[in-house]
Design a protein around this nucleic acid. Sequence first.
RNA 1: GCGCCCGUAGCUCAAUUGGAUAGAGCAACAGACUACGGAUCUGUAGGUUGGGGGUUCAAAUCUCUCCGGGCGCACCA
Length: 556
Amino acid sequence: MGVLDDIRIEITQALIRAAEEACRDGRLTCSDLPGFAVEVPRDRIHGNFASNLALLLAQAEKASPRQIAQVLLEFVNLPAGYVSRAEVAGPGFINFYLDPAWHYQVLPEVEAQDERYGSSDLGGGEYVQVEFVSANPTGLLHMGNARGAALGDTLANVLAAAGYNVQREFYINDAGNQIEAFGRSLEAHYLQLLGQDVPFPEDGYPGQDLLESMKNLVGQVKGKYLRVDPLLRREMLVKYALKEKLFQMERDLADFRVHYDNWFSEQTLHDDGEIEEVLKELQASGYLYEEEGALWFRSTLFGDEKDEVLVRGNGIPTYFAGDIAYHRNKFRRGFDRVINIWGADHHGHVPRLKGAMEALGIEPDRLQVIIMQLVRLFRGGEPVRMSKRTGEYVTLHDLMDEVGVDAARYFFVMRSADSHLDFDLDLAREQNSENPVYYVQYAHARICSILRQAETVPPVAQVDCSLLRNPAELALIQKIAELPGEIAYAALHQEPHRLAFYANELATLFHGFYTTCRVLSDQPALSQARLVLINACRITLRNTLHLVGVTTPERM
RNA sequence: GCGCCCGUAGCUCAAUUGGAUAGAGCAACAGACUACGGAUCUGUAGGUUGGGGGUUCAAAUCUCUCCGGGCGCACCA
């Protein structure tokens, strides 16, 4: 993956061998080796890597952690040429200090891999689907959808970079009750536009966007649908408006730099009989029962709070029935794993959907649902009032207009999914140092400015990287070297926000380096080495920001 | 009432999933360039991790309980 990861793996294996040999020698009692960590300590004073192995063995060995650590050190055979020193520290950690020479392997790696630097084959081509946004086509994309879009797209990018085979999907809720209400809302607008005095349905969708849509239609067909049978008329209006709304959503998401591999229609599950199939399958395994005219799923068997209706008394399947069929369909398409990104208002849905997978004989852990908390918007220090009832809210489109795509995506990705995000519109709109996205982009632009003046970057093979000895230089190289591990970690734990933090830390180290070390100087050899360094930093920053979906300007 | 998420510096958030002295940005205060972009850098101050008990070598992290906030608890999606 990268030099650092290679070394970490070697240290881990060396510790395992040391424990085994100590057992053979009777110095340890040789119970099963626990899963232990070899990780980068928070404080660099504790070395480049530290392991807690001795601490974890203490109980089974009935000895003090420090004693065990000492024994391990006696037997350990450390990777040649990398570790310069290993010692017992604190309550029983083993700290490893690397020979600084490892730094000089990093820059050739970055130069050679260029766009691919940071990527790995960790995922081994595992086929993973990320389904995100999947907003109702009956309205506009709101802030929650925007957060989901940024998060889902970045997660998909991260997974792809970590060697997973990723597919992005948008589930179109184009069936069921809401489409009925959608149709009635459209019909009311349509008839009102043509001068008829009809009431707007109580359960209708109040957004102005539906009115706009119908104005467009009236412009094209005028009163052509007035005399059509209402059922057929609503179907035609829905068909028209749905197409228009989906087109807008796809366009807005594309503007937000989000592109899907597949748009999956809920209606096709009805049309192709997949819902019927899945009901039969569940029926056959005895997970369904009838009560009060409805067909119920025993989701309480799987830890749900209450059983759920799959088919209503009127014979129409619920959304949940469609969702079960949908997820069964996903796994039938061959995905090893399926990740859904949902808003917190859907969290109650998780146990029953997982339960349904289990009932269908699908390992429920292959379905992962990331719940993201809701977004509050702030403008002028005050929360922005939004109302679904009146259909007045800030849309993704508005957000892009107001703060731009870079700031919006960075702000969303900056926070972990389970934080209740306060989005400060004023801060995001600022084009100054208070705005974290500019801080990172500025580092990139600064590098580009130096490279422009230098005109060429020498190939790393022609420079002496060992001239880079300043602490600021070594710290920068260290951070550059951490990218592959960061991406792998973010992919394994589905935590794309780490990338935003990483980008910020890398920018900080670059600015620090810039202040202490002059790149273009009258020392040609050193200048050349530093050009190689900042070019590697540029590549690393660029690759990271691209994962987040933020541009890397060469001038600002 | 029950379930899920959250509570960390004045504000917005991190914390390698149980690790060593809890860290960043913003805000505040004090400083730094006659050269590569000052949209930068250095320093100071700021904490009983909402309160209290428990688990262990070790707790912001796990557990119990209380307080406070968000979201759910439809034959809606």
